[in-house]
């Protein structure tokens, strides 16, 4: 049975078996290779996309579960240039191999939208489901705090 959904604002239909993991539909069928299948068991977060606004590990989500949903991938999030968190990560020289960042950016964008003024521990806790093997996290945490700090500046 085909699955209808909205992907990055566009109506799409997947012809795959309904149990196919969403990440494989996104990558193989729709050629959106930003989300990365790293562990395929829900631990690393590199495959994170937004499903109806919620960060979701697309490796453990059968495509049927995304039926009639609004899916946003890193490609969709970045369609109008860099977001604040992406700019801060770029300026902060945070990126190394880069494989974790599509997922990191999705998680952090959602987190910062819902937690406008987080402290360091809250940022670290928000990243529990997003592993990075390269950077040691510090610059990612700093970038998130810088986005929050920038907002505070803006309000003053």
């Amino acid at each position: 049975m085909p699955t209808d959904m909205t992907v990055n604002g566009e109506a799409r239909t997947s012809a795959r078996d309904p149990l196919t993991p969403l990440i494989d539909v996104l990558r193989d069928e729709f050629h959106l290779t930003g989300a990365k299948p790293v562990c395929r068991e829900g631990f690393c977060g590199a495959c994170t996309v937004l499903v109806d606004g919620e960060p979701t590990v697309s490796c453990l989500t059968p495509v049927a579960m995304a039926g009639d949903c609004d899916v946003v991938t890193i490609e969709g999030l970045s369609s109008c240039g860099l977001t604040d968190i992406q700019s801060r990560l770029e300026q902060g020289d945070a990126v190394q191999c880069g494989m974790c960042f599509p997922g990191m950016v999705m998680t952090l964008s959602h987190f910062l939208a819902h937690t406008p003024q987080p402290n360091r521990d809250e940022v670290r806790a928000a990243l529990t489901g997003n592993i990075c093997r390269c950077t040691g996290y510090e610059r990612i945490v700093e970038a998130a705090l810088a986005v929050a700090g920038g907002r505070a500046e803006g309000r003053r």
């Binding site: 959106l32 930003g34 970045s78 860099l82 992406q86 880069g98 960042f101």
Partner: peptide
């Protein structure tokens, strides 16, 4: 390469 890596 940071920009491309950050935008997938």
């Amino acid at each position: 390469d940071a920009r491309d890596k950050l935008t997938g």
